[in-house]
Every structure is written in C-alpha cells, then in structure tokens.
Write a protein that binds this DNA or RNA. Structure first.
Lengths: 196, 196
DNA sequence: GTCTATACTACGATAGAC
DNA sequence: GTCTATCGTAGTATAGAC
C-alpha cells in the first residue's frame, strides 16, 4: 500500500460528511466528484463503489437530514404542554439544530432545486411535515387565546425563516454565546406571536 | 440576415435580465454562457461583446441590485418620523421589494459565495449599509422606549431573514393578496419588537 | 456586434486490472 | 474497494471572418 493511502474503515460515511461540507460551501453544481474524492483521499471513480451517482449522493444527504431533524424535533417537544411552552421548545430546538447542523440545513434549503423528481418530492413532504408542526402549535395557541396571530401559515413560515437565518451569521467564537443567541430568538418569537 | 435572428436594440440589457432569471433558478454554477446566450437568441461568444466574463456579468447584476435597493429604501422611509413609523415603512418597503425583485434578491443572498474578491467586498459593504439602517431604527426605538428588544443586532438580522423569506413561498396567484401578505409581516414585525 | 470554429480544461460516469 | 485509463460531453474564453 502506497504511503499516501490511509487505512479506511468507513469510506462511505467519510464521503457523506465531506460532500456535505463541500456542497454547503460551494453548492452542488460548484463541487465535482473529483473534489469530493480528493478531500477523502481517494480517486473520483472509487466514489461509485458507494453511490450510484452524484445525484444519489445528494438525495442520500438531504433525505437523511430531514429524517434526523424531524425525529429530533418530535423528541424535543412535549406535545401535552401549553402552546406557549411548545413554541418555546420548538424555537429552542430549531435554533440549536440549525447551529449544530448548519451545513445540512443550508443544503436542505438551497439544493432543493438540484434534486430531481423523486428525491425532490421526498424532501418536500418531510419539510412540509416539519412546517406543519409549527403551524399546529400556533393554531393551538390562537385557539386557546394565548397567541395573537393574524395568519398562522404566514407567521409559521416567517418564524422559521427568521430562526433558520441564524446560520448565516452565528459563529461559535463570536460576541454572543450560543445560549444568548438562542434566548434572544426565543424572546423574539414569543413576542412575535403576542405571547410574553 | 437569417430569419431566426431578430433586430436587437439592447442586447446588453436583455442579457442582464435573462441571466438574472437563470441564475436565480439554477444558480451561477448551474447556468452556462450558452444557456444565457440561447435564451437571448445569440451565440455564446457574442456575450463577450458585452461582458468581459461570466464573473463580470454576475458582479454587474449584484452590485446594481444592491444600489437599486438601497436607494429605493432611503426614499421609502421618512427618517424624521417616529421609530415605529420608520419600522413600519421599512417593513412595507422590504416585503414589497422582495416580491418585486425576487430574482435579484435571491441572487444577492445566494451567490455571494460565487463572487470573487473585489466584487464580494463591494456587495458586502452595501448589504451591511442596508442592515445597519434597520438596526439604527431599532436602536432609536429602544432609546425612545417604544421597542422592547434585547439585542438589536440579532433582532435586525432575524427580522430581515423573516421578511426576505417571503420570496420562497409567495405567489401572485396564491391565496393571499400582496397587501394581505405585507400587512401580516408588518404586524408580526411590530409585535416582535414589542410595539403594538 | 454576431457569426463559425476552435483551444483548452473540466465534467460525470464506465471498463477492466489488481 | 481502489486504481489507471478513457469515453463522450460540456464548460469558459478567444481568434478571425463578415
């Protein structure tokens, strides 16, 4: 074995994580199979031992990400709590998740357009489930008289966009701690629905 | 002149508008010079009579867009009015501008990463000026005791992200009129800063 | 100012040796 | 499972005729 090679035990997973980082930084069309292979230390053709095509690799990343996010969100929220408590949990979860998985989140948002038919449909279904969960919380709060929101659909999307945007500017070594950022977003979200 | 050709009076401007549409839809790296030329009805090489390179074309679009947006924003806001009135004007302007220039807005957000050194710096300066204007309005409102905001910088970016997101889902032929959408965002923004 | 033709580079994907 | 080699296509940009 040449000295430049490294014993590799999990090439497929390495390909996933390097591809995710590269797609987030340069975009799907801005990254070649040679770029991905190079960052893992193999030749481009060897990728095809793990993924059928570049498109299959993207679908793998995005569908997996959506499932991870949905599952984690459902665990993070106590759906028997008050709407206000649910909204606070949702916001806390969402902001922290964006920070923890910023590359995956960015790809899920940006590269929907790069997905072909079946992959695109799969991801949209999962994204809508996530969005509907927040909308349901808002509707429950309106029903209970806790929230003042004119249009739960518009506001749900607005709040998600606001919180998702944290990845654009937040840096772990910046002026604000992660908790300060999270609490700031939670406070803004609660005010935005007229609670607090 | 072959029948497939059309008398063209403003090829450069046509190239700008077609490139903008294509970049917004498929991304800078997802669009070729042949694609752009084809949509205008000329050959790819003829683009170089109007723009030095693909990169120069992108910079032209983005810098121009930022100037248009900044100038229009400064006209739309009465900076002698109350902070609340300024914030309402800002929100109304911003949401409507996103809707009117959704392609340019989307490119300005997404393709910053595709800009090389000088172009990138130019656009960032202009974007920061825009963001600082909103932050200044929030600070004035806090100073006056009209707004309740813990961190004007975080909230300013959050509100911008929220409003900019309108382009992701708004469609002129959708359920909501443009005015309903705008007023919904304005109400949410005002609540989010504790005013109203 | 647009055309045809082309230079040069890079792309995704496959074949076959090891 | 990775390698080298290669196929066929497409990318940006330029040269020179009209």
């Amino acid at each position: 074995m040449p000295v430049t090679q490294v014993a590799r035990t999990n090439t497929k997973q390495e390909l996933r994580s390097h591809a995710q980082r590269l797609f987030a930084k340069h975009g799907y069309d801005g990254v070649s199979m040679r770029d991905i292979a190079g960052s893992v230390g193999i030749r481009q053709s060897a990728i095809y031992n793990h993924f059928q095509s570049k498109q299959h690799l993207l679908v793998d990343l995005m569908v997996n990400h959506m499932h991870v996010m949905l599952d984690a969100m459902r665990v993070a929220i106590d759906f028997t709590a008050t709407p206000k408590a649910q909204l606070e949990s949702f916001a806390r979860f969402h902001v922290n998740f964006q920070i923890d998985y910023s590359d995956a989140v960015f790809i899920a948002y940006m590269e929907l357009r790069s997905l072909e038919d079946e992959g695109h449909a799969s991801v949209v279904v999962l994204r809508d489930q996530y969005e509907q969960t927040l909308r349901g919380i808002l509707d429950a709060g309106i029903e209970a008289g806790d929230f003042v929101v004119n249009n739960s659909s518009v506001v749900a999307r607005g709040l998600l966009a606001m919180m998702t945007g944290v990845t654009v500017w937040y840096r772990p070594d910046g002026d604000l701690t992660r908790d300060e950022v999270t609490e700031s977003y939670i406070a803004t979200v609660l005010r935005a629905v007229g609670s607090k």
